[in-house]
């Protein structure tokens, strides 16, 4: 089974069609936006859509911690894992 962090790194590279960089080249702790990987707000939109599609999780645009969920691969993995767990316990 692929680690969630690895799946997310792959998702970022595939979704954004990133060239000249492979999934392994993205450090799990490295900031995704600004200095670091250098992704921008449009990239964030696309990653958000793909994360919801792939993992069946919901992203609440009013969530005040949204920026921190997207800050790194590790943070995203944590966010996805928590959301998925939350859904298992939800009735229906």
């Amino acid at each position: 089974m692929e680690r969630l962090e690895d799946r997310i790194r792959r998702l970022i590279v595939e979704t954004l069609n990133l060239e000249d960089i492979s999934a392994q080249d993205i450090d799990e702790e490295e900031p995704l936006f600004g200095e670091g990987l250098g992704l921008d707000s449009i990239d964030a939109l696309e990653i958000g859509i793909e994360i919801q599609k792939t993992f069946g999780v919901k992203i609440d645009s009013k969530d005040e911690d949204l920026a921190s969920h997207f800050s790194s691969v590790k943070a995203l993995a944590r966010f996805v894992a928590r959301q998925q767990q939350g859904q298992v316990h939800e009735p229906g």
Binding site: E19, D20, I21, G34, L37, G38, D40
Partner: peptide, 12 residues
């Protein structure tokens, strides 16, 4: 830093 990060740096 490699072509990808360099391109993103230029873009920023």
């Amino acid at each position: 830093i490699g072509p990808f990060r360099f391109s993103r740096h230029l873009r920023s």
